[in-house]
Write a protein that binds this DNA or RNA. Structure first.
Lengths: 112, 112
DNA sequence: AGATTTATATTGCACATCCAATATATAAGT
DNA sequence: ACTTATATATTGGATGTGCAATATAAATCT
């Protein structure tokens, strides 16, 4: 079952972080990324959300892309890999105890 | 050691979520919350960030507060507890695999 | 060839979150 | 009483993330 964003509080943010992490697993084009993001956030990001984020990351030198036909393949750069490592450390510092707490109090169900 | 936000990507967001989770552990006043947030995010949130967020959460009925002298004590309401549970489920769906992945590839150090 | 689908991309808007700067009221210290 | 410290609070600005709507180019299909 896929959860949509909760009504109680805003859960936006961390899109660039998620993109970097996804690209660290596998190089992907935009619509592949959109599908992976949808698995996690409940819905595909709008083009007006996704493509500016990719453009921004490329402008910062964290990802690079190559156009092949109508698709554009994105992959991490060295700077992107190093940045992701730091971002993960920060993310764990900020939310690690919330995760551990959640895992102790809830039965976790994975999608088949 | 306390990590500051990384340069690579924006890590804003989830402030209301973090506030709800902190208040689920213990009722607190604003400056106590600011200190707990600082432990996680690296710096105390500006008053212009924290107090509007608290006001918004109270307006939605997720928290309630009581003024005692110069401090205002905040605590979760029933709606806040239920909302937090859903928010945790969503958060785990969105970022759970990033956490598990991080824990597998990094040695974790806890503050003394 | 013409129509449809797919993928990329932009514009314009809304909003949470971030800051610096400033203000007010209460509590504590001298 | 006066000063200082603490806690709450607002204003104004910047930026990332979110959407709907629209546009363009390439690939596919009949």
């Amino acid at each position: 079952m896929r959860h949509n964003p909760p009504a109680c509080c805003d859960m936006r943010g961390m899109l660039s972080f998620m993109i970097l992490w996804l690209l660290s697993k596998k190089q992907m084009y935009g619509q592949e990324l959109a599908e992976e993001i949808a698995k996690r956030k409940g819905d595909r990001p709008n083009p007006g959300t996704l493509y500016p984020a990719l453009k921004d990351l490329e402008g910062k030198g964290l990802i690079q892309s190559e156009q092949i036909g109508r698709t554009r393949i994105y992959k991490l750069t060295i700077d992107g890999k190093n940045g992701l490592k730091r971002a993960c450390e920060y993310f764990y510092q900020a939310f690690g105890d919330i995760f551990e707490d959640y895992k102790c109090t809830c039965d976790i169900e994975y999608e088949a």
